[in-house]
């Protein structure tokens, strides 16, 4: 136990937690926008898998992380178009359509991986701030700062982007016309419609934002791990959906949830590697994040109200 409570180990664990939280954060922030407009997307995990494969394959073929990010975004956008058409224009039930997207992503990403790649070859890992080409040197002193260096600066650019998105999404939802429309459609689509807000268009755009971020979440995951594999996400997308409820549809609380998830997971693995958690109990420890999420939902659910029109399709009659 004492080994864990040294400053360096605790900060290293926190640093890992932050990195670990990034894919959750991208996916959950995107899902927050979608849900605020009244659309639940359970297919996040499938979109992450497709985006993750797209990014992995792009980097494998071109060695460019920028193209990897673009690939992840593009795949996410494409899947968003599909999901948007299915749920907004064809009025399909959201929960179940999401399962369809998930299954398609699970199977199709695996199929593409087996056919186009086969052998799981590592790609070049995402560079940290101080490893960036050309400008990396500028950041070296920052990374070498004690404590805050490894904690805050020793990360890749996507990590910074994910955390910058938190205030950005807050601003989008609170201060922009689009954001007001999103909230209006999510709460009372009939009223919004009568005020001249296009429910379909608002929801469609929200879905595109959410899905594109899910694609980016997958791209981040596969580029951080520098590999792709069948079912790489192992349920991260579903947990990201849970984090939106957990965070009461507020970006900053969603971020808190993602960080908590990162901390619990990173601490568990760290404790296992230090033998604080004995080998025999590792499975029980692996339940912890799920159990904590359920307990948190029990405490929060009755106090927080979500968007009133969540999962309700809208049609003008």
């Amino acid at each position: 136990m004492s080994e864990f409570f040294t400053v360096s180990v605790i900060f290293a664990t926190l640093s890992t937690s932050i990195r670990f939280a990034v894919p959750y954060l991208f996916a959950a922030l995107g899902e927050t926008v979608g849900q605020r407009s009244g659309v639940l997307n359970l297919g996040v995990d499938g979109i992450m898998l497709l985006g993750g494969f797209g990014a992995y394959y792009a980097v494998l073929e071109t060695d460019s992380h920028i193209l990897g990010v673009i690939a992840g975004l593009a795949v996410g956008l494409l899947m968003g178009l599909v999901y948007g058409v299915v749920t907004v224009f064809l009025h399909a039930k959201q929960g179940i359509s999401g399962i369809g997207i998930f299954l398609f992503g699970l199977g199709f990403s695996d199929l593409l991986f087996q056919e186009l790649v086969g052998t799981p070859l590592p790609i070049r890992p995402l560079p940290r701030l101080d490893q960036l080409p050309a400008v990396g040197g500028i950041f070296e002193p920052l990374v070498e700062l004690p404590v805050v260096g490894p904690l805050i600066f020793d990360h890749d650019l996507l990590t910074f982007l994910a955390f910058l998105l938190v205030p950005a999404v807050t601003w989008l939802l609170r201060k922009t016309t689009f954001g007001m429309n999103v909230r209006a459609v999510g709460e009372n689509p009939q009223a919004a419609d009568s005020l001249g807000v296009s429910v379909a268009r608002t929801r469609f755009i929200s879905i595109l934002i959410g899905s594109t971020l899910a694609g980016l979440a997958g791209a981040t995951l596969s580029m951080q791990l520098a590999i792709f594999q069948q079912n790489l996400t192992n349920g991260i997308g579903f947990i990201a959906v849970a984090l939106v409820y957990f965070g009461a549809w507020q970006p900053r609380w969603v971020m808190a949830g993602a960080l908590l998830y990162g901390i619990v997971t990173a601490t568990r693995i760290r404790w296992q590697s230090l033998d604080i958690i004995p080998q025999g109990a590792s499975d029980v420890a692996a339940m912890a994040p799920a159990v904590i999420t359920i307990l948190a939902l029990v405490l929060l659910a009755s106090r927080v109200r979500g968007p009133a029109a969540l999962t309700r399709p809208f049609s003008r009659h």
């Binding site: 180990v9 664990t13 890992t16 791990l225 192992n234 990173a266 693995i269 760290r270 590697s273």
Partner: peptide, 14 residues
Amino acid sequence: VALATTTAQAHVDN
């Protein structure tokens, strides 16, 4: 793979 990666990272941090 994700778990194996994180575990290896924990080893390195240790």
